[in-house]
Nucleic acid binder design. Structure first.
Length: 170
DNA sequence: CCACGGTGGTAGA
DNA sequence: TCTACCACCGTGG
């Protein structure tokens, strides 16, 4: 763990039909999203985010999360602060953000897309370090030959998300 | 199906 | 620094 310029200031519950997610916000926007039944950091009382802005961000997050969980396209996304990652990780996360509903790419294709064609394993590592799953759609990254690959929050989630988007895999 | 080597980035010591 | 991990990928049994 390293010094993190994006200390989360507020954590809010995000109820869905699939359980209660937790969204963490910093001054620049959404900085982490947790799947249900996972440890998440505690709500910070002191915040420098205006309640009105926070409410707006959380509303956008909630709508986007629920859209993805139901296999629908997302409309507007909240501002996302990805500054906690290294340069390499951020480039991987940016590449994943370009994947639309139902689109997939392999770890190798992502590696090539960011100009690091031999860094395939490192791309896998960056996917696992993705602080905002769903909205940064790391579940749309498959292994070569349409194999499933991994998922740090549990392969059952990845299978479920892909199925809801109509994506076929082995 | 399995084993293995070549990889690049990261975290921890 | 050095080292031991890895959500990989191709090749070869």
């Amino acid at each position: 763990m390293k010094a993190d310029s994006c200390a989360s200031l507020v954590a809010l519950p995000l109820p869905t039909d699939d359980g209660i997610f937790v969204a963490e916000y910093g001054e620049k926007g959404l900085c982490r999203l947790h799947f249900p039944n996972r440890h998440s950091s505690i709500v910070g009382a002191a915040n420098s985010i205006s309640p009105r802005q926070l409410q707006r961000w959380h509303q956008l997050t909630r709508a986007a999360v629920r859209a993805i969980l139901t296999g629908n396209p997302t409309a507007e996304l909240p501002p996302m602060d990805l500054s906690s990652g290294t340069k390499f990780q951020q480039s991987v996360w940016r590449a994943m953000q370009r994947l639309k509903l139902g689109q997939t790419q392999s770890y190798g294709e992502i590696a090539a897309a960011i100009g690091c064609p031999k860094g395939v394993r490192a791309v896998g590592g960056a996917c696992g370090a993705n602080p905002i799953p769903l909205l940064v759609p790391c579940h749309r990254v498959l292994a070569a030959n349409q194999k499933l690959g991994g998922f740090s929050s549990g392969l059952d989630w990845k299978r479920k998300l892909l199925a809801r988007e109509g994506i076929l895999f082995c």
